[in-house]
């Protein structure tokens, strides 16, 4: 099975969430990002790749350096999912309303 690449997978990892937090403040080079973490540069690169594959990052070329920037539009998916969670409870509650009505 092919590995899934979606926003949920991207934010399932704490390091990747931290990278997103950093990049939401400023655009950074891969080296500058890696300096914030104890793990290896390779590990950080891998996380950046996952985030890029999920379209959570935008790339900008400045001279010889590549800068990464947070792309917030993808996060809307998460927001949407949260909304679905609320919908789940709402539909549950409405069904319970019905059940209670018929028990009377």
């Amino acid at each position: 099975m092919e590995a899934r690449r979606d926003v949920y997978q991207a934010i399932a990892d704490p390091t990747r969430r931290a990278i997103l937090s950093l990049l939401s403040l400023q655009a950074m080079t891969p080296n500058a990002i890696a300096e914030n973490f104890d793990c290896s540069r390779q590990a950080v690169s891998k996380h950046i790749k996952v985030l890029s594959d999920c379209h959570l990052l935008k790339q900008k070329q400045k001279g010889r350096e590549i800068y990464y920037q947070f792309n917030p539009s993808k996060m809307k998916e998460v927001k949407k999912w949260l909304h679905q969670l609320e919908q789940l409870w709402e539909s549950r509650f409405e069904q319970l309303d019905e059940v209670l009505k018929h028990q009377k």
Partner: peptide, 21 residues
């Protein structure tokens, strides 16, 4: 649909707030 998820992660939630999604 399982109810197994919320924004248990402050960072992420801040991101969402900040970008006013």
């Amino acid at each position: 649909f399982q109810e197994g998820f919320t924004m248990a992660h402050g960072n992420l939630d801040e991101l969402i707030e900040k970008n006013a999604i």
